[in-house]
Design a protein around this nucleic acid. Structure first.
Lengths: 147, 147
DNA sequence: AGGATATACTTAGCACACTATATAAGTACT
DNA sequence: AGTACTTATATAGTGTGCTAAGTATATCCT
């Protein structure tokens, strides 16, 4: 049996992921944001957090989050201040400029969800969410177990 | 309703995609390959092809494929020759070194598939493949329609 | 035949992911 | 108190994706 993309979870999932990011990019461009900003907005919507916590919630490595936050700080979307309770750590917060965009971001996220799931029935949408979450769970368990 | 990653197709799909690439990367490292090499191997398994065709089959832009093929050529995995029938085009082929790795690549792909789907029943696996393919189809149609 | 258009590829520049390694600050142990 | 370990962030280097713009060759059309 030769290599076959139609029976490869990785190929299909990654492809769908990239198409979704492209779609998101198009929507966010009008708002002045980038895809990697989304999980940061999500993590900081409720208030300040350390970079480590933001990275964990976003599911990316700390070094990746450092770079993303550098760009966001450069663009006036977040501010950093030293954590008074821990000299190693920084507390990151959304700026007013970023907060203003939140409603637009929510609308864009909703639009993309609808577009991607347009051809699925409500039952199928639930199925998809259930399955993809279980796959993520399986991979995370594997990841944590064998580093 | 605030931003929520548990109801975001993009967030979950992209996350799963990245976890799968990470897993693939780990396996391919032992073989001396990278994730982006996979669709090239797939496209060239049967014989030579132009860069445009490889890029199309891989689902990436031509500029991305140029860079990937440059790295693969540097690493002795592919060779390029001018297309005798079209002066603009290059014909790319796998080297013997790349062909030797194909069986190992197939085994790695199979292992990852099994690992990712470990917690799903056969019926659920079919469901997942069906749903993700329809989502890709929807996004592709949208992409082609609104450029 | 010659000029417009289309196509194949490259280049340049950026975003964002990773690993590996360094730095600095906290914690713990003797 | 001082040494060893752990933890939070930063830096360096690479791969892989994108868009936009450049070059060279084909094709088409009058």
């Amino acid at each position: 049996m030769a290599l076959n993309r139609d029976t490869s979870v990785g190929y299909l999932t990654n492809w769908a992921g990239r198409l979704l990011v492209r779609e998101l990019e198009r929507h966010l461009a009008r708002i002045g944001l980038m895809p990697a900003h989304m999980p940061v907005l999500l993590a900081l919507e409720a208030g300040e957090a350390s970079q480590k916590l933001i990275a964990e919630r976003a599911g990316v490595e700390q070094a990746t989050m450092t770079a993303t936050l550098n760009r966001m700080e450069r663009d006036g979307l977040v501010s950093r201040r030293p954590n008074p309770e821990d000299g190693r750590s920084q507390l990151v917060a959304l700026t007013a400029k970023a907060r203003e965009k939140l409603p637009l971001v929510e609308a864009a996220a909703e639009t993309i969800n609808q577009a991607a799931l347009a051809d699925l029935t409500p039952a199928e949408r639930d199925q998809y969410f259930g399955l993809i979450k279980r796959i993520v769970g399986t991979l995370l368990a594997r990841d944590g177990a064998a580093p």
